[in-house]
Design a protein around this nucleic acid. Structure first.
Lengths: 125, 125
DNA sequence: GAGAGTACGCACTTTGAAGTAAGGTACTGA
DNA sequence: TCAGTACCTTACTTCAAAGTGCGTACTCTC
């Protein structure tokens, strides 16, 4: 008898509130909520950008992790890559349709974290 | 069919689109988007639950990780813990106000992952 | 002709998040 | 008396994520 006084914010369609282990959504969630995955998706939500821009804007990321994360997101169909065969190489990354859907959900989350982080993390020892 | 690619889905207030390294929001984001953090917050979004319920519903979690994650979320002021001094011990966990704010943003994200995971993860490989 | 920018790939090392295992208290039911 | 439930803690281990650093093949600037 869990008489829950407080209402859930949204009705859920998960089987029992939390999806089972081994479910593909666990994997997708790991990709999407990975340390650099979030930041890259957020950066790309402002429009297509090339490699070096992403590297600069995603402060602290290594080239290896940038390449790796972009590959994962590309394999997942969230990011598309367009390489131009010009001589200083030029590669543009942008969000796909699904990537935009995702980033639309991710942006408010990150914005919330941005607004509340100071208080939560520093406001308590 | 996703329509044409257009700019940012939402206006951002971050300095340059992505917040700087060493920023507290990076830490908060890590807590919140951690493997088990998301699942626990989602589970609690449906109402207060006790330890053993959370353990069962968050399939695959170990007792150690449950305790650790709950502690982190409690320190961050997202989850509140109420222990009753009864004799089979009874401890209830629930979301705080901030926790509800967060879960309201998290739930659609997880729902999206749930809906798209099959296609994205299994539909290729 | 030295250096920097561009977009990576590869191999090695480190870190830390997570897993595993076990213990502990204070009871209840069989 | 033994098993089981509820709620944890501590110690040890593992493994993948992340970091470091090097090489490439061009070109353009100082």
């Amino acid at each position: 008898m869990e008489a829950d006084v407080r209402p859930a914010p949204l009705p859920l369609s998960f089987t029992d509130g939390v999806f089972p282990a081994g479910c593909p959504s666990r994997i997708l969630l790991d990709h999407v909520t990975s340390k650099w995955g979030v930041l890259i998706l957020i950066a790309l939500s402002e429009g297509a950008q090339r490699w070096s821009e992403l590297r600069r804007r995603t402060e602290g990321i290594s080239e290896k992790m940038l390449a790796q994360t972009l590959k994962t997101l590309e394999r997942d169909g969230l990011v598309s890559r367009e390489a131009q065969p010009v001589i200083p190489p030029r590669v543009d990354y942008s969000l796909t349709g699904k990537g935009y859907e995702l980033s639309a959900l991710l942006v408010p989350l990150v914005a919330w974290a941005f607004d509340n982080a100071e208080e939560i993390i520093n406001g308590k020892a």
